[in-house]
């Protein structure tokens, strides 16, 4: 039985690795694109005028108010009817990035607003303009404060990238389904997939935690990190 499972695992390995590659690709690209989108939206919400702020709020609330799967279906099934056609991978990347951008915007906004207003005043009093103050004083602090939330977001994306399976992206879950459908060994296959995700989750949490420690500065974000440590 054990050796049987061993050889089964080995036979499945190429497919699983292939799927894992897509899962990581989806996760990394969408967290990165979502990050820039999120920063832009967050800055727009905090520092933008009424119109920009309204636009950002609208985007964030619409995306956060609807399921990721609906967003993917609109992009992948809906848009071709108006002539915009994406491959499954493209559609998944776009959907995940757009989605993550809205969530990242919300916690980045929280971190930006948690930087005391005196920091901005002090920067301006030195002769920095608003953009310089944001770049050299506000963001370096806000980004550090948001690391724990960012870590959660990474885990979410890692897991929600599995939804791309539904629009035929051959990521980890899809490969699992494929192997299971051909071998009828559903339980082992999905247990295997579950373990892989679990290990990815634990490892990435650990890595981000180390990065956070490396970047930590006395007095910044300390309280928040302690409260999230136990998660």
């Amino acid at each position: 039985m054990a050796t049987d499972f061993g050889s089964f695992f080995l036979n499945s390995l190429p497919n699983l690795l292939n799927g894992l590659g897509y899962t990581l690709l989806l996760t990394f690209i969408s967290i990165a694109v979502g990050f820039f989108l999120g920063i832009t939206l967050a800055l727009g919400r905090v520092y933008g005028n009424k119109i920009i702020n309204g636009f950002c709020v609208g985007y964030i609330e619409l995306i956060r108010g609807t399921p990721l799967l609906v967003q993917l279906f609109i992009i992948y099934f809906g848009l071709p009817s108006v002539g915009i056609i994406f491959s499954p991978l493209q559609a998944a990347l776009i959907g995940l990035a757009i989605n993550s951008g809205a969530y990242q915007a919300e916690y980045l906004r929280g971190s930006i607003q948690s930087v005391e207003s005196g920091q901005m005043t002090a920067a301006r009093s030195l002769g920095m303009n608003k953009l310089q103050s944001i770049r050299h004083v506000i963001l370096p602090q806000a980004l550090r404060i948001s690391i724990p939330a960012w870590s959660n977001e990474f885990i979410y994306l890692l897991q929600y990238s599995s939804i791309a399976y539904i629009i035929q992206v051959a990521e980890l879950t899809a490969e699992g389904k494929f192997i299971a459908a051909h071998t009828f060994r559903y339980l082992e296959v999905f247990a295997m997939i579950a373990v892989i995700y679990l290990v990815l989750t634990i490892v990435s949490t650990e890595i981000i935690d180390r990065i956070a420690k490396h970047l930590s500065i006395p007095g910044i974000g300390a309280a928040k990190r302690v409260s999230l440590r136990d998660i």
Binding site: Q119, A122, V137, Q141, I220
Partner: peptide, 8 residues
């Protein structure tokens, strides 16, 4: 009054 040193 409250210093406003850059925390980072």
């Amino acid at each position: 009054q409250d210093f406003n040193l850059f925390n980072h």
